[in-house]
């Protein structure tokens, strides 16, 4: 058990943080929602009903979609784009999808390579891009779900103000949808871009997200 925890500490740590933060968000969001309901002389909602509501759904999903977009773009962009001196970048002569030999696929696969890396058909194509495919699917799925929960929340607000609801397709062109989307996108892009640059000049001893402390600033694609 102890070995399992040690070998999986990173994923377990973040999974626990995720669950704790989601629960706290539910409590805080529920209290905030009911405060607003009372302010407008509207009925309050139970916690159970709140976590099943569009209000909670859109607050969760607008962040999910942007996080998965961030990783989708980062995975894709780092195939071709470089950043001199950054541990987030490949070495400067490695831009692109690289050779089968470098990627250890097909006839260059080794005995311990995953089975689909050795295949010569569509399985290899799928496996070569599986991280991007899954991240992009989660991004698009959560963005779509954000639009569904978002239109519900938006329409509830319209009804409160004695306006008729709008359709989902109409909502996709409304400022509310794009404001919720872009406010999350811009922060993700800033975080990724600043990480790529700051890691050129700054270090964290022991972290694979940083270069070794003594590595020169121009060293690219090295992890500590």
């Amino acid at each position: 058990m102890r070995t399992f925890l040690r070998h999986n500490g990173l994923s377990i740590f973040f999974l626990l943080l995720f669950v704790a933060a989601l629960m706290l968000q539910a409590f805080a969001g529920h209290a905030d929602f009911n405060e607003d309901q009372l302010r407008h002389d509207n009925p309050t909602m139970s916690l159970g009903r709140y976590v099943m509501s569009s209000q909670f759904g859109v607050a969760v999903l607008e962040n999910w979609q942007s996080e998965y977009l961030q990783f989708t773009l980062f995975i894709l962009a780092t195939v071709w784009l470089l950043q001199r001196g950054s541990p987030e970048s490949k070495q400067l002569d490695k831009a692109g999808r690289e050779s089968d030999r470098d990627q250890r696929v097909g006839s260059h696969a080794r005995a311990d390579s995953p089975r689909w890396a050795k295949a010569a058909d569509v399985r290899r194509t799928l496996f070569e891009n599986s991280l991007l495919i899954v991240m992009a699917a989660i991004w698009l799925g959560s963005w779509f779900a954000q639009s569904i929960t978002g239109v519900n929340e938006y329409n509830a607000d319209r009804l409160d103000h004695h306006q008729l609801p709008v359709s989902w397709a109409d909502y996709l062109g409304r400022p509310d949808f794009w404001e919720k989307t872009l406010q999350n996108w811009q922060s993700e892009f800033l975080a990724v871009g600043s990480m790529a640059i700051l890691a050129v000049y700054l270090r964290q001893r022991g972290s694979p997200e940083s270069k070794p402390v003594g590595a020169p600033h121009h060293a690219t694609g090295t992890e500590g």
């Binding site: 509501s53 569009s54 209000q55 909670f56 759904g57 899954v134 989660i138 779900a145 569904i148």
Partner: peptide, 18 residues
């Protein structure tokens, strides 16, 4: 998995919308 997530979230949205 993404399909499952989408289905669950749609169910959530459906409940939210009433």
């Amino acid at each position: 998995m993404a399909v499952l997530v989408t289905v669950v979230l749609l169910a959530v949205a459906c409940l939210g919308a009433g």
